[in-house]
Structures are given as C-alpha cells and as structure tokens.
Amino acid sequence: MSPTQSSAVAVRTGPSQILLNTRIIAVMRAPHATSYAPVVEALVEGGVLSVELTLSTPGVFEELPRLRERFGETVEFGVGTITTPAEAVRAIEAGAKYLVTPLTDADIVAVGVDRGVAVYPGGLTPTELFAGWSAGATAVKVFPASVVGPGYVSMLRGPFPDIEVVPSGGIGISDAAAWIRAGALAVSLGGPLLGDAFHGGDRKQLTERAVRLRGIVDEAQAAK
C-alpha cells in the first residue's frame, strides 16, 4: 500500500488494491480462530477477499500467520475489535494488513500511521468520525451504520468533503448498493454474509451469498 498525501495529516496510508477492487470487508466472529480457514475458502470462491478477524474470537494472533501462509497474497487479512495501541502493535506483528477499531482513539490510529498500515477507526458522530480522519485514518468506520443510513455519507461530505467512509453494523446484502452509491469506500458485513457458516451451515450457500454481494457491489460501483 502506498501512503497518500492528505490535507489533514502529513501521510495517510491508502486502502489496498484488493479493497479497491472488491469494496467488501467480511467480518469474522467464531468460537475459535481455528475455524476460520474453511470459511475464508468459501468467501474467496465467492470473490470476497478482504477479511477482518475480530479479537472477540479467541486465538486470532496465533492463527493469523497460518492463514497468511495458507492464502498468500490472495486474501487481505485485517484485525478488528482493537481497543488498545498494544493490540494494534501485536496485530501488525502477527501480519495484519489493516486495523479496525470500534472506537475513535488517536493513539491506535497513530500505530497504523507510523507503520504504514491501513487503519479504520470506528465512530458515529461527526465529531468522532472527523477526529479519526484527522488523525490519519485510511477511512472511518461508521458504526453502527444501520442507525443512520446511507444518506449519512453525503451529509458528512458537506462539512468534510474528502472523508472516506466504511459503514459497518446492521448492513444486509441488499443494503450494500445504497451505501456504495452514496459514496462509501466499501461495506463491512458480518452475520448477513456469513450466516451460520461457523455453526454447521452450508458453506456452498455462503459462497453463493458472497457471489451475490459482489455482484450487487460491483454493479453499484460501476454506476457511480
């Protein structure tokens, strides 16, 4: 990823080419991180290639290097639910290509900025979101996005014309197009995409949902 110049900060790390190509982040929560690999395979078959491993799942730091070895450069793995700078550092050391937080913390953003790693801090209010953006975020995560709706992106762009947004929380597959058309950099989905994949669900159906989501997002992006 190449750092890009920003008016708000000296250097901002841009989104990966994988994310720019696909515009989707799959958010993974499982009983244990050792369950991730088969689900990632199903997502890859469906064209979803950016995967956020959340720290609410045990074993993420230990499993991440194994996943990177298995999937190579095909999949971009990030670590989410980061709430401290120490977790951010450990995630990068384990091989995370990006960091995701549920909150706005300039110290966490600084870890990513200083190491040239993409970072997506969470917030909801304009004050929180602009604080994350000003600190050097790659994009800000609007969370929970279902509370505000896609129109919030254009409202934010009024006072903050350059801000990049990734909505997360309560977004269904059919909702994704509206967010992309509104100007979101990407959409972040967990349960509506993954369904019961970690609890004995049919992974073929997961791949079918991923294919459907990619089609919806690609069409919306092409129409912008």
Rank of each mutant, 00 (worst) to 15 (best):
V165N: 06
A86F: 13
E164S: 11
K97M: 13
S168E: 13
S154L: 14
V113A: 12
F160R: 11
W133I: 05
I82N: 03
D114P: 10
V165G: 00
E76R: 00
P150L: 10
V113R: 15
F160S: 10
V147C: 15
L129Y: 07
D114M: 13
F77I: 07
P126K: 05
V109W: 00
S146I: 13
T83W: 12
T127E: 05
I163R: 08
D105V: 14
K141N: 03
T127V: 09
A118C: 08
L156G: 01
I92F: 00
A110R: 15
P102M: 03
K97T: 08
G136P: 00
R115D: 01
A91M: 01
E76G: 02
P167I: 09
V109L: 03
P161A: 03
G80S: 02
V148C: 10
D162I: 11
E87M: 14
G169Q: 04
A135C: 10
I163E: 09
A86C: 08
V75Y: 01
E164A: 12
V147Q: 15
P144T: 05
A88D: 05
F143D: 01
A91Q: 10
F130I: 15
G132T: 13
V165E: 04
G170Y: 10
V140G: 03
V148P: 05
G80V: 12
P102I: 06
V111M: 00
V153W: 06
V75P: 00
T81K: 05
D107R: 14
K141S: 00
V148T: 08
L99H: 01
Y98L: 11
D107H: 06
E128G: 08
T81A: 07
T101P: 13
V166D: 05
D107S: 15
V100F: 02
T104H: 14
A110L: 11
S154Y: 11
P159F: 14
V113L: 11
A106G: 11
V79M: 02
G78D: 12
T101F: 11
E164L: 14
V89F: 11
T81W: 08
A135T: 11
K97G: 15
P121H: 11
G123R: 01
V166G: 02
E164R: 14
P150F: 09
E164F: 10
G136Y: 02
L129K: 01
I108C: 04
A86L: 15
A91K: 04
V153T: 07
V147H: 15
P121D: 08
F77G: 05
T81G: 09
I92K: 01
D162F: 14
V148I: 07
V111H: 01
V117A: 06
A139N: 04
P126A: 08
I108A: 01
P150E: 08
V111F: 11
A135N: 03
G112C: 06
V113C: 09
G169D: 14
R157Q: 12
M155P: 14
V119G: 00
T84G: 07
F143W: 06
R157S: 09
P150I: 14
M155R: 14
P85R: 00
G151F: 08
A91R: 02
T127H: 01
Y98H: 06
G149S: 05
T74A: 09
A118M: 07
A86M: 12
G123W: 03
V113W: 10
T104E: 12
E87L: 04
I163A: 13
P126N: 12
